[in-house]
Design a protein around this nucleic acid. Sequence first.
DNA 1: GCGGAAGTACTCGGATACCCACTGTCCGAGTAGGGAGGG
DNA 2: CCCTCCCTACTCGGACAGTGGGTATCCGAGTACTTCCGC
Lengths: 161, 161
Amino acid sequence: MNLKNQVEWALHCCSVMMGLPQGATLPAKVLAEFHGVPKEYLSKALQSLSQQGIVIGTLGPNGGYRLAKSPDEITFLDIVEAVEGKRSGFSCAEIRGNNPCLPKKHKAGKPCTIARYMWQADEAWRTSLRGVTLAELGRQLAEDVPAEVLSKSHEWLVARG
Amino acid sequence: MNLKNQVEWALHCCSVMMGLPQGATLPAKVLAEFHGVPKEYLSKALQSLSQQGIVIGTLGPNGGYRLAKSPDEITFLDIVEAVEGKRSGFSCAEIRGNNPCLPKKHKAGKPCTIARYMWQADEAWRTSLRGVTLAELGRQLAEDVPAEVLSKSHEWLVARG
DNA sequence: GCGGAAGTACTCGGATACCCACTGTCCGAGTAGGGAGGG
DNA sequence: CCCTCCCTACTCGGACAGTGGGTATCCGAGTACTTCCGC
């Protein structure tokens, strides 16, 4: 049940886009170089983010991506769902319906009890992700990463953006 | 990031094994018939449960599987982890290490900030699953499923076990 | 009639093919900027 | 000198192969029951 690598890449990309000056953009090529991942493949993740309205892609020279919303309006869940899809990790195949003792009358009452518990856990996962915004990530990064590295990275990105 | 079908099957199998008389066993063949799934493949899930000490497999005629512990000592998490593995769904590839602005000195301090948040969500998921025991599932099933269906299923299984 | 041993049928357990989705890559559509030419 | 038009180069966006894990299946190892034979 591994999440795709794209999820990790998308999160890191949003993280660096957060530090951009207002209106500035970063091309996928630069983001890929910065993270050491294949450019063409990373662009697929960015496309997903673009389709979900999390980032905005601009064409032409000096084009690229930038965040579509304020960092405190973008949660981890938004990014994860954009790349990974919104449906639950647990899919109920309704195998209880194969029970030979079940009357033909398709009761179709509540959803499967087991699935409910699994979805409940899934919701706990989503709630946890929903509680973390990009702004929060930015504050935490400022604590974890040396200021020098942050500023040098910032310059490196702006110079190439 | 879908979970395997095996997880669903394993949960359902544990659910029906819970109702067995003390010491009685259910062969994989019967469990497969009851749930309408391929026997040979289901047995792989049961093997995983067996290796984790959740169920006990008995060989020979009248052999089969039975729970290894009391239903209130078995959680959803035990079953899910037995089939799906214990490692987190999010794997950090440490792409932050590819940052060209990073000094050569490998700081290797805290783990990646982004990964920490993802693992935190993963832990919330596990905590939710850890809070549901088979006994709890049994109580909920007694509410959701008509008593007639439960008793007929019970008879059907005991007759073939 | 009783005990023991061999045979048998049934079970689990691991080893073996198949297939879809994630991974990785490519090329085309579209646009913004720059330069050349004319007024 | 300034405006307009065209061209180029760069960007994103969708379409195309390769590979690993999940899915499905098979056959062998091992055991408990049954049955048969000898005592």
